[in-house]
C-alpha cells in the first residue's frame, strides 16, 4: 500500500543515470563497466611499454652498435642473434648459471613454502605463549633492509668456506617473513576452527591434522607463495653477487659480470641477458594467469 505511493518517484530518480546505458552484473563485487576505446588505447600502450624492452633485448642482441644507431633503427632481430648467444655463453658461464639458478631457486622455494606454512599455521590457529610478540617480530623483520645482515653473513660463509657454494645463497634466503605472514593471513581466513576441531574429534593427532587437513586447505596459497618465491629467488641479486663469484654464478651474477670486458660489446651483453631471462619469461607466459591471480589474491589477503 505504502510502496505504491513511492513507486513513481523512484522511477524518476532512476531515469537520469539510465540515460547512459551500462551493463552491470549485480551480484559481483567491484564496479563492472565496459571499457571505452580510450581505455584500450592506454592499456595497449602500457602493454607495449612493458613488453618492448624485452623484445628490444632480442633485437639488440643481433646487431652491432653501429647498426643499432642507424636511422631508422632496426626493429627485427636477425640470425646474428645465435652467433652472439654463442659468444655470450663463451664469455660467461651462462649454462652453468641457469642450472645453478634452477637449483638455488627450487631449494629456496621448497624450504620457504614449508617453513612458512608451518609457522603461518601456528600463528593463525594455535594459541601459545608469546605468539603475538613473535608475530610482531616477523612483521617487523619485513622492514629491515638486506644490507643489515650481509656483513656478518659474509664473514660467516667465509669462515665456513662456503663462498661460491650454492648453500651460501640458499640458506640465508630461506628466511621469509613475508611468506610466514602471507600464509598466516590466508589460513586465518581459509581454515575454519571447526575443521580443526572436527579433526580432533575424529581422533587425528596434531601432525596428522597438519598433513591431512591444513596442507590441503593451504595448497592454493602455497602454490602462489611458491611462484612468487621462485621468481624472487631467481631474480635475487644483492646477496648472490656477494656470496658467489663468476666461477660458480647464478644467472644474475653471471649477467652482472658480463659487461666487465674492456670494450663492452652490447650485442653480447644483450644476448646473455636474453638467455638468462628467457627461462623465467617462458614460465611466466605459461603460468601468467595464475601468477596474476596469485598476486591479486595475496594483495587482498595481505
Amino acid at each position: 500500500m505504502t510502496t505504491l505511493a513511492s513507486a513513481p518517484q523512484e522511477t524518476v530518480s532512476v531515469a537520469g543515470p539510465v540515460a547512459t546505458p551500462r551493463r552491470r552484473r549485480g551480484r559481483r563485487a567491484g564496479k563492472v563497466t565496459a571499457a571505452g576505446p580510450l581505455t584500450y588505447v592506454l592499456l595497449g600502450l602500457t602493454a607495449l611499454v612493458s613488453v618492448f624492452p624485452l623484445y628490444w633485448t632480442a633485437v639488440a642482441a643481433s646487431k652491432t652498435n653501429a647498426e643499432l644507431a642507424g636511422t631508422p633503427p632496426p626493429f627485427l632481430p636477425d640470425a646474428d642473434l645465435f652467433t652472439n648467444i654463442g659468444r655470450a655463453m663463451e664469455e660467461a658461464p651462462i649454462g652453468l648459471a641457469i642450472v645453478n639458478s634452477v637449483v638455488v631457486s627450487s631449494c629456496i622455494t621448497v624450504g620457504t613454502v614449508l617453513c612458512s606454512t608451518l609457522a603461518g599455521f601456528a600463528f593463525a590457529k594455535l594459541r601459545f605463549r608469546g605468539n603475538g610478540a613473535l608475530l610482531a617480530l616477523v612483521v617487523g623483520t619485513m622492514m629491515v633492509p638486506t644490507q643489515l645482515a650481509i656483513i656478518p653473513l659474509f664473514i660467516l660463509i667465509a669462515e665456513l668456506q662456503w663462498v661460491d657454494h650454492l648453500q651460501a645463497v640458499v640458506l640465508p634466503t630461506l628466511v621469509s617473513a613475508f611468506g610466514v605472514f602471507f600464509m598466516r593471513q590466508f589460513l586465518s581466513q581459509a581454515l575454519p576452527d571447526e575443521l580443526l576441531e572436527a579433526a580432533r574429534v575424529d581422533g587425528a593427532s596434531t601432525l596428522r591434522t597438519f598433513w591431512s587437513v591444513v596442507v590441503p586447505v593451504a595448497r592454493p596459497a602455497m602454490a602462489v607463495l611458491a611462484m612468487l618465491t621462485f621468481l624472487t629467488a631467481w631474480n635475487d641479486f644483492f646477496w648472490p653477487i656477494i656470496a658467489l663469484t663468476t666461477d660458480n654464478p647464478t644467472v644474475q651474477v653471471a649477467l652482472a659480470g658480463l659487461g666487465g670486458g674492456y670494450v663492452p660489446d652490447t650485442a653480447v651483453i644483450m644476448a646473455g641477458t636474453l638467455i638468462g631471462t628467457l627461462p623465467v619469461l617462458v614460465v611466466f607466459v605459461v603460468l601468467g594467469k595464475q601468477i596474476v591471480g596469485g598476486i591479486m589474491q595475496g594483495a587482498v589477503k595481505g
Partner: peptide, 20 residues
C-alpha cells in the same frame, strides 16, 4: 582428549574436509 571420549560431533557449519 576428544578422541578418547567416544563421541561424535556435528558442527554448525558441518566442518567437512573440503578436499575429501
Amino acid at each position: 582428549p576428544p578422541k578418547d571420549r567416544d563421541i561424535a560431533m556435528v558442527f554448525q557449519n558441518y566442518a567437512l574436509y573440503p578436499h575429501m
